Amino acid sequence: MNHDDLPLWRLNLLRAFYLLVTLGLALSFGPLMLQHSDLWAQRKGETAALLSGLAILCLWGLRYPLQMLPLLIFELVWKTIWLLAIALPLWLGGAMTPAVEETAFACLLGIVLTPLVLPWRHIAQHYFAKPAQRWR
């Protein structure tokens, strides 16, 4: 299956999702990247920089929705890991804070929506069934 095999509505759905990710991350982290304290930079700077970079790269998904699929797969994977490794233990221990709850909701929303948008047959054919590139 090549990109011509996916219907245009599917490509446009991917484009809309890239835009949603970009806008969501830009609104969440853009202002923080411009106005922050040294303490914030030490504790949250890496996360904000990483997710701001992801937002910028998602803009390429508007032009190349299939070639940038690894970004959406990354979104799904990191949010799942965060929910299982960070939020779940805090929730089970009764130690959830409002900030963690807010992040958990955003991540949960992402792991519900992302699988609905991803073209799984295309991913299976191009990332799992396709022969690997040569090593030498």
Rank of each mutant, 00 (worst) to 15 (best):
M68L: 15
L72H: 03
R63S: 03
R63F: 14
L71C: 03
G53W: 12
Q67Y: 04
L57I: 05
K44W: 15
Q67N: 10
K44T: 05
L66E: 10
L66S: 04
R43K: 12
L39W: 15
M68Y: 07
P70F: 08
A49K: 07
G61D: 07
G45I: 13
I56N: 09
L50R: 06
A41I: 09
L59N: 07
A48W: 11
L59Y: 06
L62V: 04
Q67M: 07
L66A: 08
G61Q: 07
E75I: 06
G45T: 07
L54V: 12
Q42D: 09
A48R: 06
L69H: 04
L39F: 14
K44Q: 14
C58G: 01
K44S: 06
P70A: 10
L66I: 02
G45P: 10
L71T: 08
S52E: 10
T47F: 10
P65Q: 05
L69R: 02
C58S: 11
L62G: 00
P70R: 09
W40V: 03
L76E: 06
T47N: 07
M68C: 11
R63E: 06
L57P: 07
I73Y: 00
L54E: 06
Q67S: 11
L69S: 00
I73A: 06
Q42G: 01
E75K: 03
L54Y: 10
A41Y: 09
R63N: 00
P70Y: 12
Q42N: 04
I56F: 14
K44Y: 15
L72N: 05
A49S: 13
G45N: 12
A49W: 14
F74H: 10
A48Y: 13
R63K: 14
L54N: 06
L59I: 14
A55W: 01
Y64E: 13
L72R: 01
A48I: 04
L59M: 12
I56P: 06
P65D: 01
I73S: 03
R43L: 15
L59K: 06
L71F: 12
L54I: 10
I73F: 07
P70H: 12
S52I: 06
L71I: 12
T47K: 09
L72Y: 02
A49R: 14
A48D: 14
R43C: 00
Q42F: 07
L59Q: 04
I56D: 03
C58Y: 09
K44N: 11
L51D: 08
A48E: 13
P70D: 14
T47E: 12
A49L: 15
L50T: 11
W60T: 01
L66G: 09
L51P: 00
A55R: 02
S52F: 08
G53C: 13
L39A: 15
A55H: 02
M68W: 04
Q67G: 13
P70S: 12
Y64H: 11
Q42T: 02
L71W: 14
L57Y: 13
A48N: 12
T47L: 12
R43W: 12
L62E: 03
Y64M: 08
I56L: 15
P65K: 00
E75R: 03
A48Q: 10
W40Q: 05
L39S: 13
L69D: 02
C58Q: 02
P65I: 01
L76G: 06
P70V: 08
E46P: 00
K44M: 14
L76F: 08
E75G: 04
P65G: 07
K44R: 14
T47S: 03
I56W: 11
I73K: 01
L39I: 13
L39Y: 15
